[in-house]
Design a protein around this nucleic acid. Structure first.
Length: 431
RNA sequence: GGAGAGGUGGCAGAGUGGUCGAAUGUACCUGACUCGAAAUCAGGCGUAGGUAUAUGCCUACCGUGGGUUCGAAUCCCACCCUCUCCGCCA
């Protein structure tokens, strides 16, 4: 959420910056709502003030045993108009709030201006494209050949975009997650957290998934009381529960930065991506991810972003995977982000780079919705900055390891760093 | 699932339908005392918003949402959450 004060004082600048990401801000409507809000709020507060002072007089008069019918009749009139004004004011505030919640974050000045992912800027390439002396197989073929990947059974159990992993593949999948967690906790100073996978609507609103992107989520309806229904949601990323840990909190400054890592399943309905990446593990309704979250002082957030990006990259380096880092352009960054780097890993079977991590600085955008603040000494509480990045998407990392480490006979050599997690096994073969 | 207790400022904890935005303690800040610290004393200290430029005034907020009333932290209703005991359970 953007700061409403900034919109009030500097509407045209905000509109211009949002325009770079292809968002049209209806400045006229905002102006109208604001003008109406102002007029009605002033009138409402006037009436409230009058009611309060009159009520006080009534109390005092009654205490003296005087007659109060005249003044009570007067206050009754105030009450009628007040009721009307309060209703109108409430409606206006809801409308303004809805408008505000629908506005994306402003891209940081350093973000390259562009319209689509074609305008993203490559920052660096690490490693080189591996060469194979044989026709490469994709991960589906490899996985099925190893007897560890079964989409048909998954389809029977659940449906499309689910998978069943077995044997060595299932173990390697688990090994990857363990390896990532251990690396981030032991070497990068993150605190491991275990969090709920089902969250309430307030949490989804806090990190920006609601109200705009409900169709991307799996909703869990829940009966509350006798009549009310209140939805829960399956998390689309650990970002949601982990970042929401600081919702409505005031963190003492000396505790910053907070660095959390969580391994969770992620659930995405993938509405609107029908027909895209239907083969294999790339785009699933359920997948595992190790997520890095940092909650930092506003002055530190861009340094923290570089650091976090490096932490995610180090996993790929240790696995010996070739990748590149891409800076997303204004037209391609997500709703809540001010700046985003994507890490794309090389997939030989697709002969292309595929996103395996996305690292973003949200500045105060999420913190404002979350009311996540810090306090320094006696100073006023100020909004924190939040960041997160995948470190990494486990399923896609498994794909990358399988495809990049395949051998001519369809077996897969296991990266050295994973071997301790796999009982010392060096090569994954058909069982 | 059954029974009970409770949700008030950073924390703890009072609160009678009428100057209650809220006592008190504690933490914190400033000043005094001190070489300095502790102790003591004095003062300050919630959040959000409006108005505007005045060290000013006003409004809202006591779990959430409704209701009663001229007036609600206080009364009524519904819900949420926490804790204790019993039952069941991975």
């Amino acid at each position: 959420m953007l700061d409403i004060q900034t919109l009030r004082t500097d509407l045209t600048t905000v509109a211009a910056r949002l325009a770079t990401r292809g968002f049209v801000l209806d400045t006229e409507r905002f102006g109208e709502l604001e003008a109406a809000r102002k007029a009605i709020q002033v009138r409402t507060q006037e009436l409230q003030s009058k009611r309060n002072s009159s009520s006080k007089l009534i109390g005092q008069a009654k205490a003296r045993g005087e007659d109060t019918t005249a003044i009570m009749a007067e206050v009754a009139l105030v009450g009628d108009e007040l009721k009307l004004m309060e209703v109108q004011l409430g409606e206006l505030q809801v409308a303004l709030q809805q408008m505000l919640e629908g506005l994306p974050n402003m891209p940081h000045d350093s973000v390259p201006v562009g319209k689509t992912e074609a305008d993203n800027v490559e920052v660096r390439k690490i490693g080189s494209i591996p060469q194979f002396g044989f026709a490469v197989k994709d991960h589906v073929e490899l996985g099925e050949g190893l007897g560890g990947l079964d989409f048909e059974t998954a389809a029977k159990i659940s449906g499309a975009r689910f998978s069943v992993l077995k044997g060595g593949l299932a173990r390697m999948h688990r090994a990857l997650a363990q390896f990532m967690l251990d690396t981030h906790t032991d070497q990068h100073g993150y605190t491991e957290v275990y969090v709920p996978y089902i969250v309430n609507a307030d949490s989804m609103r806090g990190t920006g998934q609601l109200p705009k992107f409900e169709e991307d989520l799996f909703r869990v309806p829940r009966q509350m009381g006798e009549s009310g229904e209140q939805n829960f949601y399956l998390i689309p990323t650990a970002e949601v529960p982990v970042t929401n840990m600081v919702r409505d909190e005031i963190i003492p400054m000396e505790q910053l930065p907070l660095k959390y890592v969580a391994h969770t399943p992620c659930f995405r309905s993938e509405a609107g991506s029908a027909g895209r990446d239907t083969r294999g593990l790339i785009r699933q309704h359920q997948f595992e991810k190790v997520e890095l979250v940092q909650i930092v002082h506003p002055d530190e957030s861009y340094a923290a972003l570089e650091q976090l990006l490096g932490h995610a990259e180090s996993i790929l380096q240790m696995l010996g995977l070739h990748y590149r880092v891409v800076r997303l352009c204004t037209g391609d960054i997500g709703f809540s982000a001010a700046t985003t780097y994507d890490i794309e890993v090389w997939l030989p079977a697709q002969n292309t780079y595929r996103e395996i991590s996305s690292c973003s600085n949200f500045e105060a955008f999420q913190a404002r919705r979350l009311q996540a603040r810090f306090k320094c000494g006696t100073g006023k509480p100020e909004l924190l900055h939040t960041l997160n990045g995948s470190g990494l998407a486990v399923g896609r990392t498994l794909v990358a390891v399988l495809e990049n480490n395949q051998l001519a006979d369809g077996s897969v050599s296991i990266p050295e760093v994973l071997r301790p997690y796999m009982g010392g096994l060096e090569v994954l073969r058909a069982s």
